[in-house]
Amino acid sequence: MAYQSLEEINQFCVEKSVPFWKAVLLGDMEENGISEEESVHTMKGMWDAMLRASDDYDTNLTSNSGLVGGMGGQMESYRKKGDTLCGNFVSKVIAQALQMGESNACMKRIVAAPTAGACGVIPAVLVPLFREKRNIEQEILHSLYVTAGIGEVIASRAFIAGASGGCQAEIGSASAMAAGALVYLKGGDNNQITDAAAMALSNLMGLVCDPVAGLVEVPCVKRNVVGAVNALSAADMALAGITSRIPPDQVIDAMREVGETMNDSLRETGKGGLANTPRAKEISENI
């Protein structure tokens, strides 16, 4: 069964007395006619691919256009000096988001989550957590089901492609998915999971998709950072007991409405926003 609303997932969890991740896993098993082992095996494949992508980052690589490359390494060197405004953990998250976004731009292997352009957000928050604790692989796999459940609902009620709904649909969705995963990993309940997702999505609402020269590079790589850091703050707010005043499903519907009203020039056409600046036009002509 594919879920149409976060409310539906939460209700299912109450009725069957299962955690959020399990509801998503059961849905996948039923929808695709597969066993629990098969589904978890595929999920582990996604997680292993994220870890491998993180390991394979090469700070010396530059994208074909020359616009991005090396930023993940710069951030990591800066973090290691030990005097960042964001602190050590958040700085690791920032570095990881940049690295994954740059690897994608440099044609390395990544996991689209939910898209290639937003592939840095979820690993940016999960990989540093995993590397600090190590023995939490099972919880990480469960948290990936949480991200998938949230993403599935967003994709069915709204959209996850920048061409359809702007960057809010890509980085915004990834951020909502990551926020839910973080709440789960920190022991929050189902309502806190969906509230964190709602707050993350609300806080990026209206974000436009304006790639310079039409490439998944500027501003996409750095927007993975805002998606990841926004997920951390939304999760912490939810864990502190702060709620989304607008119900999570209604936030998703609002995101859809905003995306549909968004001018075509701001939906991955490379015509508006940052893509329409004089500098962007120069770059475009020289590629």
């Binding site: 695709n32 999920m43 691919a49 290639a116 993403g151």
Partner: peptide
């Protein structure tokens, strides 16, 4: 909808439409 279309696929970047497709 398959959840591994949401979380996934594993692909070489940078674009699901322009590269993977």
């Amino acid at each position: 909808m398959n959840i591994f279309d949401i979380l996934g696929p594993v692909m070489v970047g940078p674009s699901s439409s322009h590269t993977a497709g």
